[in-house]
Structure formats: structure tokens, C-alpha cells
């Protein structure tokens, strides 16, 4: 998988503090191991939909809201934040869809 621009990921939670930081750390580790260049930022529920991101990673409740009004091309909904395999699988699938749709 090669791309010129790093993928822009937003890790979002209700407040943009605890859970989002936790997700950011996890997502950065996963993408680093996968050798995928990425810029990962955190955001709260209000800010996240307005941000210029390729992917938003968040929980199932906010994911539904972001799908309806977000600008991100892919929304990844994580059910179990302790399950790194779940996060990795969903994130890499979203990146593949992005790669497929890139003009």
C-alpha cells in the first residue's frame, strides 16, 4: 500500500479527552506497525464532524451521528476499545476502501 499523502485520522469521543486520546494512541501504534503514514488528531463530538479527515474512529453511538453529518469519507465504529484486533481490522478495511476510491 503506497500513498503520497499521510492518511488523516480523527480519533473522536464525546469530550475529546480520555477516550479520544486512548484511541489516538492505539490507532497510531496500529498504523505505524502496518507501515501506513498517518496524521492522527483528537476531537470532541462537536468538532469531529467538521474536521477535514479521511477517517473518523469513534464508538458506535457517535459513529451513527457522524455518518449522518460528518465530512469524513470513512467512519470506523469501535465496540470494544480493548480489542486491538477489532480496531486494526476495521481501520485497515476502511483504508482499503479509501485506496480503492481514490481517483
Amino acid at each position: 500500500m503506497s500513498r503520497k499523502q499521510p492518511i488523516r485520522v480523527v480519533a473522536a469521543c464525546g469530550l475529546g479527552t480520555g477516550t479520544a486520546l486512548y484511541l489516538k494512541m492505539t490507532v497510531e501504534e496500529i498504523l505505524k506497525k502496518a507501515g501506513i503514514p498517518a496524521v492522527v488528531e483528537t476531537a470532541d463530538a462537536t468538532l469531529a464532524p467538521a474536521m477535514n479527515a479521511d477517517i473518523i474512529v469513534t464508538g458506535p453511538d457517535l459513529a451513527e451521528m457522524f455518518r449522518q453529518r460528518g465530512r469524513a469519507r470513512e467512519i470506523v465504529a469501535v465496540t470494544n476499545y480493548g480489542n486491538r484486533a477489532e480496531i486494526r481490522e476495521k481501520l485497515l478495511a476502511a483504508i482499503q476502501r479509501l485506496e480503492g476510491s481514490t481517483p
Binding site: C13, G14, L15, G16, D61, N80, G82
Partner: peptide, 23 residues
């Protein structure tokens, strides 16, 4: 209030929740 407004997302893994508010 955060949990009331934004849903139960603080239950982030089976059996565990992490209640918090903003700094």
C-alpha cells in the same frame, strides 16, 4: 451529564466504563 447527553460510550470495553469530564 456527559453520559446522559452523548450516550453510553464511556462503557468502552466489556465490563468496564471510564467516567470522566473535561479538564
Amino acid at each position: 451529564r456527559t453520559c446522559e447527553e452523548l450516550g453510553p460510550y464511556i462503557a468502552i470495553a466489556p465490563g468496564i466504563a471510564i467516567p470522566h469530564a473535561r479538564p
